[in-house]
Amino acid sequence: MTAALEAVGLGKRYGRRWGLRGCTLAVPSGRVVGLVGPNGAGKTTLLHLAVGLLQPSEGSIAVLGDAPASGPAALARFGFLAQDSPTYPRLTVADHLRMGAWLNPSWDEAFAARRIRELGLDPRQRAGTLSGGQRAQLALTLAVAKRPEVLLLDEPVASLDPLARREFLQTLMEVVAAHGVTVVLSSHLIADLERVCDYLAVLVAGRVAVSGDVDALIASHHRLVGPRRDRLPANQQVIEASYTDRQSTMLVRSHDPVLDPVWSVAPVTLDDLVLAYLRQARDDAPASSPALAVAR
């Protein structure tokens, strides 16, 4: 099966700084993929590389097996919604649909018209006068009506209020249920992703810290609490550990069940898991400026 999105050793340099480096990721198709990471982790850079708005400085990336934007056929296969759902403020809702129909060979007129009706949007209204939530829904309608196989969304709900956020994700999930499109969406809020994503990639400082099926990730990570220990069996990978003089608390990755009776084992939430990887990456990162030298 062709990966929906595949990056190998992908890097993008902005001047002297790397926005993304050594990024290797294979996203299976038919999934809803969450791309999580703090601001500046490289989420937007990765998405822009995927759609051909940026060229890689090193490595390669492919969408559905094709190099990004390699021709009209490749362009027709994915839809991209940039951050803050850009629309043309002076064009009306109807203008946007007409433009979508002109520009996209596989345009689904019936879907677009029905969607606008369901949203209760006035076709004569200018996009600039729509609310943030309505504008996001209009932009999503355009991206979906071109009937892409892969939909890439950059922070689609970050600027929306809670109600608009829920409605946007409802629409998106209905589209996934109806058309089986692969979705890759980025967010710095895990709560947004928890409900909708079944595949997760955590991006920190331009690298993929962890990625995989959400249920498999949750099932293979455990929180252990027990008497102080500095060593663990070899089949467990410690993501995070904290100690008091008596107690050890760890978040470990282990495919086998933890049977040692000294540990009390608790499941982790997606939130715990992502935060542990974010902290691990931060603590492992080489200092970008020289560390302070201590004069002796």
Partner: peptide
């Protein structure tokens, strides 16, 4: 699945 997805905004695969 479509109805559940529409009311809960969750992934249809779930």
């Amino acid at each position: 699945a479509q109805q559940v997805v529409a009311s809960l905004a969750i992934n249809p695969n779930t």
